[in-house]
Design a binder for these strands. Structure first.
Lengths: 137, 137
DNA sequence: ATGCTCCCTGAAGTCGCTACAGGGTCAAGG
DNA sequence: CCTTGACCCTGTAGCGACTTCAGGGAGCAT
């Protein structure tokens, strides 16, 4: 199949597929008479794997390693598990960070009383003299 | 003060300060006899504002607009509030996305039984044939 | 003179794409 | 035969927000 069909079937954009090839994530496919890329079922499977990994937030580097592990049938599951656990830990850390950010931001947003800039609590919270809470430093 | 002291006082790296200047976020400071940047208290205040905004996850574009609003005392607080609310909405959306990601990933990670690659549930979940649950296509 | 810390500029690299310029290929229709 | 249009090609530049690197200069202490 040509690149457009592969794109439709996987939900990955044509430019992104070419970019994956350029960066070594996908093997260079055969070319047909008109120099168009010609993909087979194996390429479809590999790209689907990549897409699923990206949807789960793995980096391309992590996906590269996961794909290499699938080819090495002798290796055991531990490294795969470690990659997944590490990614999970990152995701959880981001959730914690964003949650405390949300608390601060909703405090800011609720402080707005619709007055003029001079009284704007949001800008005052951002300014160097005024930390977000009622204390002064 | 020189750039190194400004960096220490604000917690912003030297290179980042120079980058903010290049991209127009900070004004070009005076130079001393040795062509070193020479910052005053106003620059310290501006950079602290930027740092605080970055810590709260605002983009440089949003921070630029917020700083412009502080200079225009006639404008009212509405635009500031709108920027903050929009950012809060983005943060909340990210939290939702990451939370569903976490659910999927912890499902994956718990499926690992420590066996060989052929039985690795994580890789099978990533593979094109197998969606994250135990069904087969 | 030497060493050290700090500073300078400009360019390139990071991640994961996206967009664009300027073309080539191929099938259908007039 | 020619045009239209969908699709494809390569190569390069751009995004955000930096970080890193190469190759030097300033100024102070020994």
């Amino acid at each position: 199949m040509r690149i457009g069909e592969l794109a439709r079937r996987t939900g990955v954009r044509v430019e992104t597929i070419r970019w994956y090839e350029k960066s070594g994530l996908l093997e260079k496919p055969a070319r047909n008479a008109g120099n168009y890329r010609d993909y087979d079922a194996a390429a479809l499977a590999r790209l689907s794997f990549i897409k699923r990994g990206r949807d789960l937030g793995f980096s391309l580097e992590q996906i590269t390693e996961l794909m290499a592990l699938t080819r090495n049938a002798r290796a055991d599951c531990e490294r795969v598990d470690a990659i997944a656990r590490q990614h999970l830990a990152e995701v959880e850390r981001k959730i914690v960070d964003l949650s405390s950010l949300r608390r601060e931001l909703s405090g800011l947003v609720n402080s707005c009383t619709g007055g003029a800039i001079g009284e704007c609590d949001i800008l005052q919270a951002l300014a160097p003299e005024g930390p977000p809470s009622r204390s002064e430093g």
